[in-house]
Amino acid sequence: MAHALEPQAKTLAETGPGASFGVIQGLDPRMRIVVASVFSIVTVSLSTIPGLIAALAVSIGVLLMSRLPIRRTLKRMAMMDSFIIFMLVLLPFTTPGDAMFNLFGFPASWQGLWKATEIALTANAVILSLMVLVGTMEPVTLGHALHKLRCPEALVHLLMFTIRYIEVLREEYMRLRAAMKVRGFRPGTNWHTYRSFGYLVGMMLVRAIERSERILAAMKCRGFSGRLLLLQEFNLTLRDYVFAATLCIVCIGLLCLDFA
């Protein structure tokens, strides 16, 4: 699904069993979701810089194990950082404490700098482990695994529909944009642009609803009863237990490092 950001990249939904994510690939999806959740809760509860650096190191370790393209994954992580950089830069100036230096008469405090560092480390450690452990799954597998973890059936249905139709609707959006382009539409800051984009969104929604009516009719025709038919069975193997136990020990280690 990453294609939405990088048009040239293959979609995750297309990767199928051919793609290899190293050690991570063979692990049970349910276990990966649980481990990622446990790890992120532990990471968020850490409050010292050494503990958080260790947590980020664990995330990077998992990334190396997964054989994901390292540069691209880190680049995507950095993209999130560009969203929060504003807040992080502000924090030293807004947190009271020992002055570090003055900028145009505004004192920056060490406490604020540490706080900002803590947030950046936590956010990156969690999102990286999440992308590696859960993001490497096929989106449909994610839905099935969540179902097995007792997520409400309607929510899983919604997730599966969203996954299925993002790509379809994105293609429709591209087609509408291409149609606008051949008619000489160039976006700018003006009323005409906003009106055209508004109509574009409205058209997409109207078409989406009409499409959903056809889908419903097709599903009813095939006797859809609201039950999820699972195409794959998940099995916990020894490797899963070993991986889960290792990460639990690592988490306990992180907590000990944090309290020490």
Binding site: F161, T162, L205, A208, I215
Partner: peptide
């Protein structure tokens, strides 16, 4: 469910 799912996907695309 299909309506909500397709709309959910269109809002995802619209946010891009």
């Amino acid at each position: 469910i299909p309506t909500a799912g397709v709309l959910s996907a269109s809002f995802f695309v619209a946010s891009l």
